[in-house]
């Protein structure tokens, strides 16, 4: 089964992407100014990247909400924006401050999930914690599926970190085994992340919706890793997409496989169309990003639409 988008769906994705850039700023800027003003002042590129990621999360959140048959109202838009900010900052703790900070953050986040306590040591962490607290207050965070999704996402992040820190262990594996582990880790990180987002936005999801959204989330990570392929290599970071000989062909296959699954699992509707429209646009822009970085070089700090 293949999906053929329409110009109307592509236009809707364009329109929402533009709208949510502004909406992301409206939600996050007051929090950044109040808790971590240096982020905008001293790292404008990072701040723009945060807003861009947040706009993307809002767009995905919009699709998840419509898949769940709810309206993506102002409260849900705020929640999705907070989730975007939260993901960006959490990723920054893992990616930008070295191995010791990465392991330390994971330990403290484990404590947060086990006890609710989080030791705040910097403005960035204060901003992160305030965003997490607002998110947790947005919905009953103790619903079984949401709790599990948060935990599964954390475990997937921890596994990713473990592999990054154990380069020798990963290198000792056969190529096939290494790629299988990297592929599973990528699938889980983004698959569980979209389930966290969807559960913050929709009170109840059917099993079909859960499976369909996980599948969409997994695809997002493969697309993302293809876009970041050169920057990741530069940073010495192994991903499934930078360990295969023909990543563009592999991504094309993954895209076809996952979108077919999505079509088979999720019922037809505006939510499914929006999700597929977003994935198609993301796929195209990341193919372009990959080619551009192959020609001109680039880093993880480049901001792409």
């Amino acid at each position: 089964m293949t999906w053929t988008g329409t110009p109307a769906i592509a236009e809707r994705v364009d329109l929402l992407a533009r709208r949510y850039r502004g909406a992301a700023r409206e939600v996050l800027e007051p929090l950044v100014l109040a808790h971590h003003p240096a982020l905008g002042r001293e790292s404008p590129a990072e701040y723009r990247k945060m807003l861009e990621l947040t706009a993307k999360m809002m767009l995905v959140g919009h699709a998840c909400t419509e898949v769940g048959d709810f309206e993506f109202d102002a409260a849900r838009q705020r929640t999705a924006a907070l989730f975007g900010g939260c993901c960006f900052l959490a990723d920054s703790f893992l990616d930008d401050f070295g191995p010791a900070a990465m392991a330390d953050y994971l330990d403290r986040f484990t404590t947060l999930l086990e006890t609710g306590w989080f030791e705040i040591r910097s403005d960035r962490e204060r901003l992160f914690y305030v965003i997490v607290a607002r998110l947790f207050a947005a919905r009953d965070v103790l619903t079984p599926l949401l709790r599990q999704a948060i935990l599964q996402l954390h475990l997937a992040q921890a596994e990713d970190v473990r592999m990054r820190l154990d380069g020798a262990g990963l290198a000792a594996l056969t190529g096939g085994r290494r790629r299988a582990l990297l592929r599973q880790c990528a699938r889980d990180r983004s698959g569980h992340a979209i389930l966290v987002l969807a559960n913050f936005l929709v009170p109840r999801l059917t099993l079909d919706q859960v499976a369909g959204l996980f599948c969409a989330g997994a695809l997002v990570m493969f697309i993302d890793d293809h876009g970041d392929c050169h920057a990741d290599r530069q940073d010495g970071r192994l991903t499934y997409m930078n360990q295969i000989s023909d990543p563009e062909r592999a991504l094309r296959r993954l895209f076809a496989k996952y979108t077919s699954q999505l079509l088979a699992i999720l019922p037809a509707g505006s939510g499914r169309d929006l999700l597929l429209g977003f994935l198609t646009r993301y796929y195209r822009t990341r193919l372009a990003k990959h080619r551009q970085q192959a020609r001109m070089g680039g880093s993880a700090w480049d901001v792409h639409e």
Binding site: E114, G116, W117, E119, Y129, A137, P144, R147
Partner: peptide
């Protein structure tokens, strides 16, 4: 106020370790 309350709760941890030994909120339901 919500941000203030959330941050104040976390500050309790350093001010009163005995009270903070008890969990505040447990997400992990493994």
């Amino acid at each position: 106020f919500g941000d203030w309350a959330a941050l104040s709760l976390q500050r309790l941890r350093s001010h009163d370790p005995a009270r903070a030994a008890r969990p505040l909120l447990r997400i992990d339901n493994r």
